[in-house]
Design a protein around this nucleic acid. Sequence first.
DNA 1: GATGATTTGTACGTATGTATA
DNA 2: ATATACATACGTACAAATCAT
Lengths: 235, 235
Amino acid sequence: MPSMPASPSTRKDPLHADASPRQRPTRAEELRFQVADEITRGLLPPGTTLDETALAARFGVSRTPVREAIRELAASGLVDTRPHRGAVVARPSVERLQSMFDVMAELEALCAGLCAVKITPAERRALEALHAEMGDLMRQGDFLGYREANETFHTSIYAGSHNDYLAELTLSTRRRLSPFRRAQFRALGRLALSHTEHERVLTAVMRGDREAAASAMRHHIAIVHDAYEAYAQSL
Amino acid sequence: MPSMPASPSTRKDPLHADASPRQRPTRAEELRFQVADEITRGLLPPGTTLDETALAARFGVSRTPVREAIRELAASGLVDTRPHRGAVVARPSVERLQSMFDVMAELEALCAGLCAVKITPAERRALEALHAEMGDLMRQGDFLGYREANETFHTSIYAGSHNDYLAELTLSTRRRLSPFRRAQFRALGRLALSHTEHERVLTAVMRGDREAAASAMRHHIAIVHDAYEAYAQSL
DNA sequence: GATGATTTGTACGTATGTATA
DNA sequence: ATATACATACGTACAAATCAT
C-alpha cells in the first residue's frame, strides 16, 4: 500500500558517499536522506521551516521518524533547531558562510595535496577520463551535465586522498554549502574557468606535486567562492 | 550511582562549548550531553552497547528522548548504529584512527596558523597567562590540572583563529578522538614535552608567524599521537 | 497581559526485525 | 531450521511550551 509516491524509482542519485553501512533502510533514514537531498538541491531553501506534522503527512508516516530524521539533520548542520520552536533549514550569517568557505578551501586543498601523493593508477586513469569528459561537456555548454560531473570530480579527489575521515569532513562541508552555490555555473565563462582550474589541479596531482595540487585547489575553491558572493549579499 | 527518579534538578554541566543557543534544555539534549560526556571521559569505553531501555531507566525518562539523543550522537560520530541492531560507542579501526589523527593535526595547525594572524590583544594576554599557569602545573606534576588546562589551551587556539566553523570542526574531531587519548599525560616526561611544544606554538603565534605556528602545532599533535599509538594497538 | 490554538516534547503500547536456544 | 525471546522502530496519546489573538 504505497500511500505516498515516496519515489520508489526516482533517478538514482550518484551522491552516495555516506558513512552508514546500508542495511535495510529504516523510515527515519529514508526521510533524512530525502530531506537532506531536497535541502542540498535547493528545493527547501535556507530558512524554510520544517513542520513535523506536515512532513509526517507528506511522507505518510508518524511524527516519530520525522523527528529523528530532523535531529540527525540538525547534528549534521543542515538544519537549525531550537527547543520547542521547531526546525528550519540552516541559514548561516554571511560571516559564518565566509568561515565555511575558508575551511572548505583548506579541506579541499588538503585532499588534493594528499591525492597527489597517494592516488592509485586506477584512480589516476579515472580522474583523467573524467576530466576529459568534462571538457566535452563544457564545449557543449551542458551546464547540468558539467555540474554533476563536477561533483564526481571533487569527490574523486576526496577519495584519492585515501583518508576516509578527511573525505567525510570535506563532503559534509560541501553539502552544507551546496544550498548557497546554486547559481554557480550559470555563465559559460564560469564553466570554462572552472575547467581550467581543474586542469591545474589535475596536472599537479599527476606530477605528484603535493604543494602545487593543494595550492591549485585552494585557488579553485576561492574562485568558486567569489562566483556567488553576490548571493550571500542577499542574506 | 544514585540513579534517582525523574531528577528535575540535573543542571550541573560546566562543559558548555556547544554552538546551540541555550534555551531551556530538553531532556533529549541533556541526555545527549551527558552521554557524550561519559563517552569522551572514557566512562563508556569504545564498543560499549547503548541499550535504550537501560539508559531510559537509568535517567528516569522514557525511551523516546533516549533514542533521539542516540541519533544525534550517531550523527556526530561518537556512536555507531545499525538498523534494528542498536547502538555502540564508536570503535574505529586503527586505519580510521590514523586518518582522524592526521586530519586532527592539520585542523589544529590551521587553527594555530590563523590564530597567529588574527589573535586579539586580550586573547594574546589570556593565552600567555594560561601557558605560564601550565608551566606551574607541570612543575608541580599536577597531571589532572595540566590535562584540564591543556584543553583550554587548545580551545583557546581554536577560538583565536576567529573562524567559528573551523573551531567547531576541530573541537568535534578532538572530542571524537578523546576516548583514545586517555593515557596521554601519564608520565612526567610527556607533560614536559607537551609544554615545550606549546611554547613553540605560542612564540610563533606571538610573532604572528602563521607558517611557524601551524608547523609547530602540527608537530605537537603528531607527538601527542605517537604518545598513545600503543593504545591503538589494543584494538 | 491573559487565553486559546498550535506545535513540539515525552510517555507508552504495538509491530517488526534480529539474535539465541 | 523453527521457534522463542528480546531490542528496536513506529504509531498514538497526552503534557508542556510557544505563538497568536
